[in-house]
Design a protein around this nucleic acid. Structure first.
Lengths: 249, 249
DNA sequence: CAGCCCGTTGCACCATTTGCAACGGTCATT
DNA sequence: AATGACCGTTGCAAATGGTGCAACGGGCTG
């Protein structure tokens, strides 16, 4: 809608591919060098772009700060965190929290091992959306039409032999997840890793986030992991209650 | 330099503070609502901004993708990664890799436990710059003037009793690190956690990155951790050699 | 030393953006 | 129910701000 801003922002994904010099940026944008220069300068002032020693431009550090802050003020995350830590203390395994936004599934919190180090793993990346338990939970809640539309647009990489192979299988899986109210990923992403997950719902019953417990085969078998399901579900429900408890002020 | 882009980008840090509606954005930018609307729309199209159900705007998911990709094509990171994994297999503890850019110290890689999950911990945040071993290494390499300028601008939060208390102490510590060519953080950030770190240098001898090994007291004492120093330094040197080996093409 | 390439600057023109005013919807008040 | 306030949205005319051009200067190569 705004040509100038549009051009400026187009520089970012371009630089995401790798550093580029002024000429390259101007070419790719199809504008005059002087125009590209001014846009880059503005981006630079805001720290979104950074000039390395060979004069080429690269993405800047401010992006991290922004991404970080974006995740920090997600209210679900804040409310859920204490519960996740508590669950982690009980079961010891890795806990993930994820949301669905704008066609992407994002991990927004993770609790691992004893000391709570936050990790935004693969954030923004094609997050194994076809196999991850949390992804299934989040997508399962969408309308029929949406699910189908998304399922068809996706790729179905065979991470392992147990990965979801195609759209039809994925839709069936989503249907199942929708009905049973929980989801698993049994070696669908990495052969030796299993997950169990449950949805977190807002006051209106819609799924606002999803959580999962992951553990490698060598520590607990898939069957043993499944015995944690009631606990996981109870935790998810506790978070849901907390979350819908105080109406958004 | 470009007013329109400047205004658009100013919206991002503004939204980082929390979601805001059109009116608030327009006020803060000191422009007409219709102007703010157009800017937000453009940001939205690029996925940097996202509209939540109550019509307010928040930071978008694309920011994560960009931050992710930004870190992915840092060449030091790529070169170092294999070495870090190898070291991790030997010592078992958590390994960090960090760089200094634009007045910030950023973690750009981490290897923890057996399966290599990447984590960008506290990326973009005030990274305990006054106590972390990697931060000391990176800052120690700056010029005298730069070090002093930075040291005076910093805050010195007392995370623990062993945190660096003030600028003078920090400068002394940097001097020491500079001379000995390695650094530690002995309970300066979290009481029970110690780190040893070493610098990674480019062909010109300047420090381009820093790495560290962290372990909790309960697993190894500080003295035991220090016995790893030669190994850490050798790894850092190996990375330095790899890094300066092929001149930037 | 000449030639080339790249980043940079000042300038004049005109496309783009801007603020305005007016519309329509939602919500709270009376 | 009706009124009024508030917020997001749109079309338009004015002019500000962005654009491409041409020219400069510095670094590198032949």
């Amino acid at each position: 809608m705004s040509q100038t801003v549009d051009r400026a922002l187009s520089i970012l994904p371009l630089l995401a591919e790798g550093p580029a010099d002024l000429g390259q940026v101007a070419d790719r944008l199809d504008v005059h060098k002087s125009t590209a220069l001014r846009l880059l300068r503005t981006l630079h002032e805001h720290g979104l772009v950074y000039r390395q020693s060979d004069q080429r431009y690269r993405l800047g550090a401010r992006l991290f700060a922004l991404a970080q802050e974006a995740v920090e003020n997600l209210d679900v995350r804040e409310i859920a965190h204490a519960h996740l830590v508590e669950l982690n203390e009980k079961v010891g395994h890795t806990i993930h929290l994820a949301v669905y936004a704008e066609n992407e599934v994002l991990y927004i919190d993770k609790v691992e091992s004893r000391y709570p180090v936050r990790m935004y793993s693969r954030v923004g990346k094609p997050v194994a959306i076809t196999v991850a338990a949390v992804a299934k939970l989040l997508l399962a809640d969408l309308s029929d039409a949406e699910r189908r539309a998304i399922a068809e647009k996706l790729d179905y990489p065979m991470y392992t032999a147990r990965s979801t192979p195609n759209a039809a299988a994925f839709l069936r899986e989503l249907e199942k997840v929708r009905e049973q109210g929980w989801a698993t990923d049994l070696g669908g992403h990495e052969e030796s890793i299993n997950c169990v997950g449950a949805p977190i719902r807002g006051a209106d019953g819609r799924v606002v986030a999803a959580m999962s417990v992951s553990a490698p085969n060598v520590v607990v078998t898939a069957e043993e992991l499944l015995t944690l399901l009631p606990l996981v579900r109870r935790t998810a429900e506790a978070i849901s209650r907390d979350y819908s408890g105080t109406p958004p002020k």
